[in-house]
Each structure stands twice: as structure tokens, then as C-alpha cells.
Design a protein around this nucleic acid. Structure first.
Length: 302
RNA sequence: GGCGCAGUAGCCAAGCGGUAAGGCAAUGGUCUGCAACACCAGUAUGCGCCGGUUCAAAUCCGGCCUGCGCCU
């Protein structure tokens, strides 16, 4: 039996997952796209060593912020962990807020066929830049009209992926998605989603972001910028970090982040933390939309 | 007390006689290799209040209320 415990950011998943691990003799596998990164502790609200209460945690702190990560990698690593934990007679508990990752494991979605074609991606990005999202989308309409219908013209990122998939595999992504959706994984799991009153959740988020500032998020970000991360990296899309990147870019579009960082003032930081609150609330809302759509979830209000 | 300016959605704000732009927030949704990503859709029978002019008023006129500034 596989246990999944998830919910919007700041509902209290971490605390609940530890309780669960004690009750069920379990180990925790983090399903979090940002907590995989070392050095990003405060901004990702990563669990602290002492909070683990001796419960083993997997897939936390496994990468440098300069490294790439994605669903495919997550799924492989997660499955390894599950096998390992079960072989030792313990219960695997997936805990974390990245719904897409959880879905990949529970539905056993097949990602192996297509790699990333960076040259082709760059070409398509240039096309969208120069001739507009419409031109790019028309390209997709020609090879895969079904996918074109499903993906909105303005969604350049997904349009590119669909085109890339077709080029790499010769198969339409709409057909691939169709077969994946029909698939039954056969995995025995319990999928719990923690939730609470929306306004209460938002209050907790605001409070948590204030706490992050007190705990030294500003210094943490400074150190990460020193490590040479750049705008486009996966790690810098994380809430609590990307707002700093954006603020730097408003001042200077091309200089290294670590250089611009020293020019930020107290007012800039105030604005950044306000933006982090808003982005986090939006995120929580999107997470809830995702979980509402998933089948087999067991909602827990608290 | 007098004079001037302002009052449009939760917030900011355009419109200045022809039937309420836009942005943010809030809300709902999409998602199958960057997902803490990317993207989409609604949201004022009404423009401080009352009356008047007009075929037609958020727009013009009068009074009142509130805020800001200046004067006494």
C-alpha cells in the first residue's frame, strides 16, 4: 500500500506526514519540485532535520540549484524509492504539493519515449518571438490538429512541447496523451488531500512568508545567486526565489544576478515579499484546482 | 465660515452628452518531460446622494454629503 499525502502549500502537510509515518512505520518520499534543491531551505519551507523525528526522508536535497529537474526524473527516482522502502518492509509515504509529479507515479505515465531536442526548441521559440504565438500554433495545427485544439494559442510552452514530441517520435502527442489517460496503473494507493478554509489558508501563507523573511530568506537568496544560477533555471522558478530574480531584472536585464542583488533596497525587499505572498496564494489556488480534478482523492478538512 | 479640487467594482484607473476601457486582487478552469511552470474565462442594470435639463447624463445645471488643499 502506497500512501499519498498532499494539499495546497502551507496547509500543514509536513506535520501530518510525520504523524502518519510514525503510525504506519513509514518513510517519506518528497513530491516537491523545489525541495529537491540543496541550499533552498527557507524559501521552500523545507523540513528541518530536527522536525523529521527520525523518519527517513527521500528526494530532498539531491541536486544543486544549477541542475535541471523534471517529472520524468522524479518518476524514476520515486519508483526506486518505493521499491527500496517496500523491500525493507516499510510503508512508502509520498508527501508534497506537486500534483503533476504525484499523478505521474500513480498513473504510471510513460515519459520515456521523448527526450528534449534543444536545437528544435530554440528554433520554435525564435519563431514565436518573431512571428507571434499564432504562427507557432498554426504549425501544430498542421501536424496534430487535435493537440492544437486542446492547447491554447498563447500557451507557447505547451505548443512547443507538442511539436517537439511529434518531431522526435513521429507520433502525435494528442494520441499519446489519449492512451496514457486510458491506462490503469494497478498501483494500490490511498490519495489524501489536506484542505482548510480558504481565508484561513491565506492567513497562514501570509504569516509564513513573513517568517521566511525573519529567518533570513534574503541572505539565503544572496548565497544562491553567488553560486551562479541564472533566470531560466528550474530552481529559479520557485516561489520565494523568482521574485528576487524579477526584481533584479527590472533594474538590469543582463548583468549577473549576484551583481545586481547588492543594489536592492529595503523598499525593493518589501515589494518582493508582498509579491511572494500573492504568488503563493495563487499557487495554493491552482493546486486546489488540480486536486479537485483528480479521481480517487480523499479530502481531509482540518 | 469662504474658495478650489476630487468622489466610477475590494484597490488603482480611463471615459467628460450616445448607452461603463484597462490593470491588480478575488473567483472558476486547463494541464501527461521546465508544473512553485505555462495558459484560459467570468466579475458594476450602474459611476457619493437627491433633484433638474435633454430623445439620451458617469459626463451639463442646482442642492446636499464626504475627503484633500488653500484662505479667514
Amino acid at each position: 500500500m502506497l500512501i499519498v499525502i498532499t494539499g495546497p502549500t502551507a496547509v500543514g502537510k509536513t506535520k501530518r506526514s510525520i504523524e502518519l509515518a510514525h503510525e504506519m512505520n513509514g518513510e517519506i518520499i518528497s513530491a516537491d519540485s523545489m525541495q529537491v534543491y540543496k541550499h533552498m531551505d527557507i524559501g521552500t519551507a523545507k523540513i528541518k532535520k530536527e522536525e523529521m523525528e527520525g523518519v527517513p526522508h527521500h528526494l530532498i536535497d539531491i541536486l544543486e540549484p544549477t541542475e535541471e529537474f523534471n517529472v520524468f526524473k522524479f518518476k524514476e527516482l520515486c519508483n526506486e524509492c518505493i521499491r527500496d522502502i517496500e523491500s525493507r518492509g516499510k510503508t512508502p509515504i509520498i508527501a508534497g504539493g506537486t500534483g503533476f509529479y504525484i499523478q505521474a507515479v500513480l498513473k504510471d505515465v510513460d515519459f520515456t519515449e521523448a527526450e528534449t531536442d534543444f536545437k528544435y526548441r530554440a528554433e520554435l521559440e525564435a519563431l514565436a518571438e518573431n512571428e507571434g504565438a499564432g504562427a507557432l500554433h498554426r504549425l501544430l495545427s498542421e501536424v496534430d490538429p487535435e493537440a492544437a485544439k486542446e492547447i491554447h494559442e498563447n500557451n507557447i510552452k505547451r505548443t512547443i512541447r507538442a511539436l517537439e514530441y511529434y518531431k522526435l517520435t513521429g507520433e502525435k502527442i494528442s494520441e499519446h496523451n489519449q492512451t496514457q489517460r486510458m491506462k490503469k496503473s494497478g498501483i494500490d494507493y490511498k490519495y489524501y488531500v489536506l484542505n482548510m478554509d480558504r481565508s484561513k489558508l491565506y492567513e497562514r501563507i501570509n504569516l509564513r512568508v513573513d517568517l521566511m523573511r525573519e529567518e533570513g530568506l534574503i541572505d539565503e537568496v544572496s548565497k544562491i545567486f553567488e553560486m551562479g544560477v541564472t533566470d531560466g533555471m528550474t530552481s529559479m522558478q520557485g516561489i520565494g526565489y523568482k521574485e528576487f530574480v524579477e526584481a533584479c531584472r527590472m533594474k538590469d536585464e543582463s548583468a549577473p544576478l549576484s551583481e545586481i542583488y547588492s543594489q536592492l533596497s529595503g523598499k525593493d525587499f518589501d515589494d518582493i515579499f508582498e509579491k511572494i505572498k500573492i504568488d503563493t496564494r495563487h499557487f495554493a489556488k491552482r493546486q486546489l484546482t488540480w486536486f479537485r480534478r483528480e479521481e480517487d482523492v480523499i479530502w481531509i478538512e482540518h
